[in-house]
Amino acid sequence: MEPLERYRPIIDDFEAFLAACERPLGNAVRVNTIKSSVERATAALEEEGAEYEQADWNPRVLRLETDSPGSTWTSFHGFTHGQEEVSAVPPVVLDPEPGERVWDCCAAPGGKATQLAALMDDRGTVVANDNNLGRISALRFNAERLGATSLAVTNDDARNYSLERFDFDEFDRTLVDAPCSCEGTIRKNPDALDNWSEGHISSVAGIQKGILRRAIQATREGGTVVYSTCTFAPEENEAVVQHALNREDCRVVDFDLGLEHSPGLTEWEDDSYDESLEQAARIYPHQNDTGGFFVAKLEVTA
């Protein structure tokens, strides 16, 4: 927990934050509406005696009272997919529509890519990319289990991604669920902070900046880009968005979020960020009893 001390000045009720980080996280699943309505999935869970609680902010997210969420009939049928509650936030903020072209540039193992497909009623094109071939096999497995027919899977570095292979040259919306230092997953992976260092943070931040810039370039004017991480470090969050604001044609926009959260930062240590970054969301573990997340929504302006 030591590395988290640096966030004491920016987090209200820091002791509650630390206490939440020490508590293991329960199981959550997302109802895969490509294969089942929420009503049918919950009826099936009830039939097999599995207890669940529906998230207030999103009826498709269920907190499950079981140790083995993978061995239910709903899971076998692909009605549900194990996915952390906060991890279901970025696709909802991106808000894709049926028929659109959407790029998930860091997509493996596919929880959010398949959620995007579901939000689009599995109609349109979701290009799910990841540079790690090993993780792509997990993505493909999940996509097939969940019945996502709108996914096209590619294996490239998002920083210099080429659209030449397709017959369109820009996306309507892009999700950048970036690789990060994963501080916010501490409740799931108790060793998440073992290799923590400022050096590591600054090297991932470099990759994040490259990916976010390419995402904005590949998205049409008026289109939307959502940037998310599961970490608290401002160097990987507000600073990355600030970098994009300086170099690319885009602006930060507001969004509604039915989960308790804190605004994005406008200063950290010696840096200051654009005021619009207050419209980003920092979700801390103690606020909703979840993992930690950062989400910013951008509009592409040229």
């Binding site: 599995d122 109609r123 979701v126 996914l151 899977v153 397709f166 017959d167």
Partner: peptide
Amino acid sequence: YTFWEKGAGKIWIYGGDAPSPISIEAIGM
């Protein structure tokens, strides 16, 4: 939907846009 072949006889079903042929990891299911 469109149908695609990769490998010998493996058929995929896809609901999105793509030119043919295309070299990617997966197209639909």
